[in-house]
Simulated assay, not measured.
Amino acid sequence: MIYTAIKVLLTAVLVVAISEVAKRSTVFGGIIASLPLTSLLAFIWLYGETGDAGKVASLSYSIFWYVLPSLVLFIVLPLLLARGFDFWLSLVIACAVTFAAYALMASILARLGVAL
């Protein structure tokens, strides 16, 4: 239980730190947020809990393929905001389009026989 609480606390601190940095500099905040810090934490937590390097490798492989559709969010959201859409509506639409991109990627990977 304490281990889980430490994981949650460390992950939350990371997210809050990024948002605080972004208040001062969106460029620096963007650089920090774009680092695969959450993936690195997931690798560390997974390996620490299982000791299974194969699971870490498999997670890394899955992340690679699913990073591609996640980029849709970072294209759609600023386009909608630049066109004057409300922030919350833009966020919902961008998330929906990103979800569709994930579904499309899963379908493409399945058709290509890529096992995740």
Rank of each mutant, 00 (worst) to 15 (best):
P78Q: 11
V67I: 15
C95E: 11
A53V: 11
F87E: 08
T11E: 03
S107A: 15
G30E: 00
Y3D: 02
I18D: 04
F64L: 12
S60E: 06
L35A: 12
L104P: 05
L14A: 07
L41M: 14
A42F: 03
F85W: 10
E49R: 01
G113Y: 09
S58N: 13
T38V: 15
I108H: 08
I6F: 03
A103M: 14
S19R: 05
G30Q: 00
A94W: 06
L109T: 09
W65S: 09
E49I: 00
L112M: 14
I32N: 02
A57G: 12
I63T: 03
L40N: 09
R83W: 12
A42Q: 05
L9Y: 04
A5P: 02
F99E: 06
S58F: 10
A12V: 12
I2D: 00
W65P: 05
I31G: 06
G113I: 10
L89Q: 13
F74W: 11
S107V: 13
I108E: 13
A5L: 11
K23F: 06
A57Y: 12
A96G: 14
I93A: 01
A94Y: 03
V16G: 05
G84P: 08
T98Q: 05
E49S: 04
I31V: 15
A100P: 03
A33R: 02
C95W: 12
R24V: 14
T11I: 06
S62P: 06
A57W: 10
L104I: 15
A12L: 14
V114S: 05
I32A: 00
S90K: 02
R24D: 14
A106D: 11
T98S: 06
G51K: 01
L71Q: 03
A33Q: 03
F74K: 01
P36S: 09
P36H: 07
A101G: 07
D52V: 05
L109P: 00
V15K: 04
Y66H: 11
L80S: 07
L40S: 11
L35C: 14
A110T: 15
V97W: 03
G29Q: 00
G113N: 05
L89K: 13
A22N: 02
A101F: 09
A57H: 11
S90P: 09
T26C: 06
I63D: 02
G113M: 06
S60C: 08
